[in-house]
Amino acid sequence: MDAAALLTLTGLRVDRGGETVLDGLDLELRRGEVAVLLGPSGAGKSTLVLAAAGLIEVAGGAVEARGRVAAALQGAALARRSVRANVEAALGWWGVPRPERPGRATRALERCRAAHLADRAAGTLSGGEATRVHLARAVALDPDVLLLDEPFTALDPAVRGELLAEAGDLIRDARRATLVVLHDRTEAWAIADRLLVLLGGRIAADGAPAAILGAPPSEEVAAFLGFTGRLELAGGEILRLRPGQVTTVAPGEGDLDGTIEALIPEPDSAIARVATERGRLEVRVAVPGPSTGELVGLRLLGGARFEARA
């Protein structure tokens, strides 16, 4: 075990409802880092959190924690009491002596900018307010390992952006290992030191966000991370491309030509789905710009190469 590792999952296997959700998963969370776990719906992200927190039985493998693990599960489940009472109750569960609880609750609520909510009944909170209290309750415990399962879902975009901007400071603690499960890839870049991708019951990618995005370890990871273009190169290699790694030029002037099959509008531009003789890819185009059925030239600006599988 790494000297800094606070939580180690080894060969973890979890079955739920007769199906194997996690299958031989290895993961080490280290002191001081904020790791973000991404994965498609149903990949087993919440199952991983439940298993790591010791809340469900594992069918195989081991979960070893150095120190105590606390988790803020998906959905801000609060007791029908005041906000302050909710945070103090959690401190009580954690074993914090009674005299220390009010101070720690107040500090945690302040850090999560929820101090003004302290005397409100939990049932009267909006989704965003409840989420802040939910976070504060977990942060207040000051655990050695903190697991947060989709802490930003069910928020309206404005609140989400605001909380995300603060989340880095809020969550990061040099003494602690933190794992944040996120559904939305774009949120990960805002807070992650380390990116984990859960695919097929295992960690399929593990590393710095920029490194993974620069060189995804497998084609499946690339596809999940938004490398929507897929070209078969001469020599049997596969090139995966994000829309931002392609630009349009006049026909014949780029690396290859293609026909626009469909246009998917976005706020200030559109994503064009282009069919070429080597495969399909997506590229961002101006609006108004080329229309469906038009022939365009394509210049490729990178992408990730993979060996074609037999």
């Binding site: 809340l55 606390a70 988790a71 007791a79 109750a89 569960w93 415990l141 697991l147």
Partner: peptide
């Protein structure tokens, strides 16, 4: 009853007795 809340309490270290009291209180 609030199964999520009870699971959450467990994730925050609540003992079985804590969880039963929380649930009966709810």
């Amino acid at each position: 009853g609030p199964a999520n809340l009870v699971l959450q309490a467990r994730a925050l270290g609540a003992s079985p007795r804590d969880r039963l009291l929380l649930l009966l209180g709810e």
